[in-house]
Every structure is written in C-alpha cells, then in structure tokens.
Computed example of a mutant assay.
Amino acid sequence: MEHIKQWVADNPTLASVVKFALLVVFVLSIIQLLRRFLRKQVTDTTARYKSQKGIEVVGYIILILLSFSYFTGTIKDLTLVLGLFTAGVAFTLQELILSVAGSLYIFTVKVYTPGDRIEINNIKGDVIDVDTIYTTMMEIGQWVSSDNYTGRIVKLSNAFVFKGPVYNYSKDFPFIWDEFNLPIKYGSDIALTEAILTKISSQTLSQFTTNSKKQWRDVVNKYYIEDAMLDPTIAVTLTDNWIQFNLRYIVDYKKRRSTKNALQSEIYNEILKTKGKVKLASATLELMRLPEIEVKVTS
C-alpha cells in the first residue's frame, strides 16, 4: 500500500489518468449490467430495444459530464461546459426533440389517436400506432382510388404536427360530404328524375343522415360553427349538352366508395324502369356532312 501511495505522489498526472480510466470502466460496466438485466427481464422486443438504447444514451451522457467535471475541477467551468454541451445537443437533435414534443402534443391535445383517418404532410391514411418519435399509418389513396389501402405502411415524424395542417376525417364528426353528377338528356322527364334521386338517396342514406345529425349537434355545441344541411340535396344545372343533376349527401368516412356504388346502381336500375322517360346523356361528337360540289367541264 505504501508503494502505491508513493507512486501516486511521484506521478500525479499518470495517477489521475488511471483514476479516470477506472471510473470509465466502472460506468461502462454498470451500463452493460443494466442492458443484460433488461434483455432478460423485458419480453417485448420494441420495449427491450428502446430501453437498452435509453440506458446506453444516459450512460454516455453521464460519462461526458463526469469527464468535464473530473478535468475542469470547478463548478463554474462545469456549468459553462454543460451549457455549451446542452446547446450542441439541442442543435444536433432538434428534429428528435421536436418529434418528442410532437408526441406529447398529440397525446395531450388528442390531435389524433390510433384508428383515426388523417392527412398530414400530403400523406393520407389510417393511424395504426403513435409512439414517442413516429406516427405509423396505413396509407390510402395515391394510385388507388376512392380511399382504398395501398398496402404501404408509412412512418411519419411527430414533428410534422407543428409544421402544417392535420386533416382528421374521424375526430368528433366521423362523416364527410360527397357528391356525384348525373347527366340526363334534354327532353327527359325532369320531375321524374328528381323523384328517383330523392327516393333512392333517402332509402340508401337514411342511417347516415340520422346518425350524423346526432353527432353534428355535439360539434355545434363544442365549436363556433353554424348549422349545416345534412339531408341529401339535389341541384340542377343546364349545360350545353345535357341537364346535370348534382346529388350531394353525407356518408361515413369509411363507406364512401361502397355508398356511391350503391346509389349509382339503384339510380341506374330505376332509370331503366322509366322506359325512356328518363335517358342518360353522354358526350357525343356530331360529324357534319360536306355539301356536294358539281363540277362541269366545258371544251
């Protein structure tokens, strides 16, 4: 023991380096022990991976702080170094910090929850998971029409909730307005056409209309918004080629395509039953015949 004390007294710098090396080995050993403990105790793969990474990051931060404290030796210098270190970390990890802040904002304000259909950063889909960094969505749209799944799973940084609008199809009011145009030939029975549209839309959309009225009252009470027309509406426009009937209606946001298909099929079948009183129109091209020119040759 006396020999060790004498060696330390004779070699203060080298002894200081050895002490620091032992301190580093001790902290790294603690990190490894904790990682092994978590590997054995935590069964969920995602939770195990994130907890191990978290212990590793915390351990390295502690090592950096101990290094500054060990070599500077004063609280004043340590405070300065900590300030610079914090500023550097904040600048380097600003996207990560925004993502974590975004996750807190999402959970606190309930911007959206798993199961909601949203559009954010020009990406539309159903939210299937929200963690501390990413929002995971099952994508809809793109090359597939009428809000069908594409099969791609999209991970989007939670930081985007601060960078642009978030469109929510299902929060508070899980219904949307949809419409389609029906071209009818001039000379058709307009009153009969309107009666067909009214009858079919009332039968097909009655459940959506009833349920949406109940939820719309809650929306009006919660937000500063005026009342809206929730029953199906029909508008008639006279064009150069046909009489255009526009049917506007409200529908469950997940049943938009199937509802439009049911409406159009039923309307088409009813039009066939009119036996020509109502005729569908289509774009046509009329070719004009050139007049005949008689040429006489005289000698």
Rank of each mutant, 00 (worst) to 15 (best):
D227M: 01
T132N: 15
G141T: 04
V144K: 08
S188R: 05
D218R: 15
K185M: 03
D227K: 12
I140D: 10
V154G: 11
G187M: 10
T193N: 02
K213H: 00
T132K: 10
W177H: 09
P174S: 14
Y149T: 06
K110C: 12
Y169K: 10
I123Y: 07
L104T: 12
D131K: 02
T209V: 08
I123V: 08
D172S: 14
V166H: 08
V109R: 05
L93K: 06
D126M: 09
N158Y: 02
N148Y: 13
V220A: 13
E119K: 15
D116V: 01
Q94H: 11
S103T: 02
D129R: 12
L205P: 01
I120C: 00
N211V: 00
L205C: 07
R117C: 09
N122A: 14
T108R: 09
D178W: 07
D116E: 11
P183S: 07
I176W: 01
L84M: 14
K185V: 07
I196G: 03
I106N: 09
F162G: 11
N148L: 04
K199A: 11
G125K: 01
A195G: 13
V111S: 15
V127I: 15
I200N: 07
W216E: 02
T86N: 08
Q215H: 09
D147W: 10
S145M: 15
L96W: 10
I200A: 08
F160S: 13
K213S: 06
Q94M: 03
N181A: 09
